[in-house]
Amino acid sequence: VALQSRLRQMPELFQAMHPTGPGHFGVAERGIIALVNQDRLRRILSKMLDENEFLSPYGIRSLSKFHEGNPYILHVNGQEYRVDYLPGESNTGMFGGNSNWRGPVWMPVNAMIIRALLNFYLYYGENFTIECPTGSGKMMTLFEVSKEIADRLSRIFLRNEQGRRPIYGGTEKFQSDPQWRDYILFYEYFHGDNGAGLGASHQTGWTGLVAKSIQLYGLLDAKRALEGGKQAAFKKGTK
Rank of each mutant, 00 (worst) to 15 (best):
Ile60Trp: 15
Gly93Trp: 10
Asn127Val: 03
Trp101Lys: 05
Val27Thr: 04
Val27Ile: 05
Ser62Val: 11
Tyr187Trp: 07
Val36Gln: 05
Leu198Pro: 01
Thr129Pro: 00
Arg102Cys: 00
Glu12Ala: 14
Ala200Lys: 10
Asn100Ser: 08
Thr238His: 08
Lys147Ser: 07
Arg155Met: 12
Leu122Met: 09
Gly93Met: 14
Ala150Gly: 12
Tyr124His: 10
Glu68Arg: 04
Arg102Ser: 05
Met140Phe: 08
Tyr187Ile: 00
Thr238Asp: 14
Phe120Ile: 02
Leu41Thr: 07
Ala111Asp: 15
Gly195Arg: 01
Ala111Leu: 13
Val1Met: 14
Asn98Ser: 03
Lys235Glu: 11
Cys132Lys: 04
Val109Ala: 15
Leu185Trp: 04
Arg102Pro: 00
Pro178Tyr: 12
Tyr85Ala: 11
Ile214Trp: 14
Tyr217Asp: 06
Met48Val: 14
Gln179Met: 09
Leu226Asp: 01
Ser5Asp: 13
Gly192Cys: 04
Glu126Ala: 07
Ser146Ala: 12
Ala16Ile: 07
Pro133Ser: 00
Gly163Trp: 12
Asn119Lys: 12
Phe25Asp: 01
Ser5Ile: 11
Gln15Glu: 15
Lys239Pro: 10
Asn70His: 15
Arg8Gly: 10
Tyr121His: 02
Phe66Gly: 04
Phe54Asn: 15
Glu51Ala: 04
Tyr183Leu: 06
Glu131Pro: 13
Gly170Cys: 02
Gly103Trp: 01
Val36Tyr: 03
Met94Thr: 06
Met112Val: 13
Tyr123Glu: 03
Arg82Trp: 12
Cys132Asp: 14
Gly169Asp: 11
Lys239Gln: 07
Met139Ser: 11
Arg152Asp: 05
Leu198Phe: 03
Gly169Lys: 08
Lys230Gly: 12
Glu131Arg: 06
Pro71His: 09
Gly199Tyr: 00
Lys147His: 13
Phe234Ser: 07
Glu80Asp: 10
Ile149Phe: 10
Leu142Lys: 04
Arg164Tyr: 14
Gly197Phe: 01
Gly59Val: 15
Glu53Tyr: 03
Ile60Cys: 13
Leu198Gln: 07
Leu55Glu: 09
